[in-house]
């Protein structure tokens, strides 16, 4: 019985100055092979200058069911935005 190749997530920096972005996933036996496969699968047309691979099982993700308690409290904290503060029009450069 074959042992299956684990799943990896691929992140690619499209050019220097930009962050790595999630591009997709693939299967590979180890990290070196995951990098090689990622190069062939996701960067055949100069899409990247740097690749990260990480085993999918090592990613901890938030659960969308908890989105309410996680993200909603930020909605009523309008005082975190500059437009919350009333200033007279004469004030410049602020």
């Amino acid at each position: 019985m074959t042992k299956n190749w684990p799943l990896w997530e691929v992140f690619v920096r499209s050019k220097n100055g930009l962050e790595h972005r999630h591009f997709g996933s693939l299967h590979a036996a180890d990290a070196a092979m995951a990098l090689e496969n990622a190069r062939d699968v996701y960067t055949r047309r100069n899409e990247g200058v740097s690749i990260w691979v990480v085993e999918s099982k090592d990613i901890t993700a938030s659960n969308p069911e908890h989105n309410g308690e996680l993200f909603e409290p930020a909605q009523d904290k309008v005082y975190r935005h500059p437009t919350f503060y009333d200033l007279p029009d004469e004030v410049k450069h602020m």
Binding site: G24, D40, V41, R44
Partner: peptide
């Protein structure tokens, strides 16, 4: 060759998308 390699790539993007729905590649 490049076209056939693309088809392989497209298959892999799509298998990857499909696996997010909770079915394994096997």
């Amino acid at each position: 060759l490049a076209k056939v390699q693309d088809e392989a790539g497209h298959g892999l993007y799509l298998y990857g998308a499909c696996e997010t729905l909770g079915i394994s590649r096997d």
